[in-house]
Nucleic acid binder design. Structure first.
Length: 491
RNA sequence: GCUCCGGUAGUGUAGUCCGGCCAAUCAUGUCGGCCUUUCGAGCCGAUGACUCGGGUUCGAAUCCCGGCCGGAGCACCA
């Protein structure tokens, strides 16, 4: 320890390296991840989900998964399954799960309580009329209605048509930000809800249900995007009306991804019109698309930890993700030979002693994983792009022989690695004719490359990521008939 | 237009609250070298930033004012 002692430098607040601490932690923290079930999760959701879980891990407490389906028009019934699947892939665990459409009675009770407290009023102004009043800081005539009048209208509301009346939370009609003034808490939606059918007509607005649930669930810290900045402020009025303690709101900036589609609605449209093959099309930014491409959950987690929670926007590049991912894949992925542009080559003059079985390790750093065998004979497949045009240029066929090309004819040059080194030979992978396996590799732009791979690639299991030597990392997705289909990750 | 917020190397971050230890951290990218029977990994090195202008101060990335640039919100969506 510090033998010199006496060094009592006054330190600023001790900081943990990496993710910043949560403000005002008093014992256990309660967090929630609250997606709208309009589709599967995408990389933007990953940030909220992972950060919430990391904080839960750091402080103890719990993480609640809350499905926010209070707009019947924005619910994709399949999302109720897709969301948990995506979370599981990310290794995000939650302690409780609630679905807002199960809690309609709770929202009704609190709405009524809010009316009784004089914190909200029933408003029958047409939307545009109210907007005009609001924009000029004028209260609408309904704002001063008595609790009894409001209650009467509230009870009548379920029988009214969409748009006839709403419940508004009183904020400050003079608030300098017009967006904050007297926001809507409840409205009528006539559409059938994919989950609860036509049982209800009156639905809470997000700001209302979120605040009620956050309070009821004892949420202490709310992590949300900065697009919710005004919503946080709106919700604070509700907390005050109800005499509830306001949780800590933490806002993070926008996450931009280079050349990838993050919008769920645009992705859905593209799927419907056939532009994309599905939610896991490699061009999409969904979790399932990323997973399919062999990006590891750990890489996404590390990325989100690095980005953290600051409110400034950040741009994530694929290079960044690939760099992180390579770190996890390097150790995991076994090596195989594949040529993308197969070209049969007959090598003249190979001494018989050099023909036969060639062995290469499945992983150069893990000899314990065993060896793959390749039959080396006169004829092999090389990638067309590797074949030199210059007759002086020596090519080393990995772990086999050195060759040269003259007028498209391959000739034996020498055997050893030393000669190859001396000749500054390019060392390339190859595939034996015997037992060749045709594979498909789906590229990030969704184009499909058909290539030939060595026969031992057929022992790779679905879901495993391999490294196609000199080509890059790829994940075996499934075996389509007899053709294994891989998804290319990156170099 | 109105309201609010932000701006540290190519990118992502630390530092900003509580000014000096910051000629500014780490990662990734890029470039170069070594090594390696992969264009992967590893090792070594290089590169490169406090948005601008004023002010306060002995001293400013850090505090104040203004400009510029960027973003979010302005719904009976979440």
């Amino acid at each position: 320890m510090d033998k010199l002692g006496g060094h009592v430098a006054k330190k600023k607040t001790e900081k943990v390296k990496g993710l910043a601490d949560l403000p005002d932690v008093d014992g256990e923290v309660v967090l929630r991840f609250a997606p709208n079930p309009s589709g599967p999760l995408h990389i933007g959701h990953a940030r909220a989900a992972i950060l919430n879980q990391e904080y839960r891990k750091r402080y103890g407490g719990k993480l609640i998964l809350r499905v926010e389906d209070t707009d019947p028009r924005r619910v994709d019934p399949e999302a109720y399954q897709m969301i948990p699947e995506d979370l599981k892939w990310m290794q995000v665990e939650w302690d409780e799960e609630i679905i807002q459409s199960d809690r309609m009675e709770i929202y009704y009770q609190h709405a009524e309580e809010l009316i009784k407290r004089g914190g909200a009023y029933m408003c029958t102004c047409p939307g545009n009329v109210f907007k005009e009043l609001k924009d000029s800081s004028q209260a609408c005539p309904h704002r001063d209605a008595s609790v009894e009048e409001n209650l009467a209208l509230w009870h009548q509301m379920p029988e009214t048509a969409e748009g006839e009346m709403v419940l508004r939370v009183k904020t400050d009609i003079q608030h300098k930000n017009p967006a904050i003034r007297d926001w809507v808490a409840m409205r009528v939606v006539e559409d059938t809800h994919p989950r609860v059918g036509s049982k209800y007509r009156v639905y809470p607005m997000m700001n209302f249900s979120v605040a009620v649930d956050d309070h009821l669930c004892g949420v202490t810290h709310v992590l949300r995007g900065k697009d919710h900045l005004a919503n946080s402020e709106k919700q604070e009025y509700l907390y005050h009306h109800m005499d509830w303690e306001v949780p800590q709101f933490i806002h993070y900036g926008r996450l931009k991804m280079e050349d990838i589609l993050l919008s769920t609605s645009k992705a859905r449209q593209g799927i419907e019109d056939g532009t994309y093959s599905g939610w896991d099309d490699p061009r999409l930014g969904t979790i399932r698309a990323i997973a399919k491409r062999g990006i590891q959950a750990e890489a996404i987690r590390k990325l989100m930890m690095e980005i953290g929670v600051k409110i400034a926007d950040s741009t994530v590049s694929w290079k960044k993700i690939y760099g992180l991912n390579r770190g996890f894949l390097e150790d995991k992925a076994n090596r195989y030979f594949m040529v993308a542009n197969p070209h049969v080559v007959e090598i003249e003059g190979i001494p018989d002693s050099l023909k036969g079985t060639v062995e290469r390790p499945l992983h150069p750093d893990h000899p314990d994983r065993g060896m793959r065998q390749l039959d080396f004979e006169d004829m092999i497949y090389l990638d067309r792009n590797d074949i030199p045009t210059n007759p002086e240029q020596v090519l080393r066929v990995m772990d086999a022989v050195n060759i040269t090309f003259q007028d498209g004819e391959a000739h034996y040059h020498s055997a050893g690695l030393e000669e190859a080194r001396k000749a500054k030979a390019k060392i390339v992978q190859w595939v034996p004719l015997k037992g060749v396996v045709v594979i498909e590799v789906v590229m990030p732009d969704a184009t499909v490359v058909t290539g030939y791979a060595e026969h031992s690639i057929s022992s790779v299991k679905g879901g495993d990521v391999v490294q196609l030597e000199r080509v890059g990392f790829a994940r075996l997705d499934q075996i389509n008939g007899h053709i294994p289909r891989f998804y290319y990750a990156h170099k």
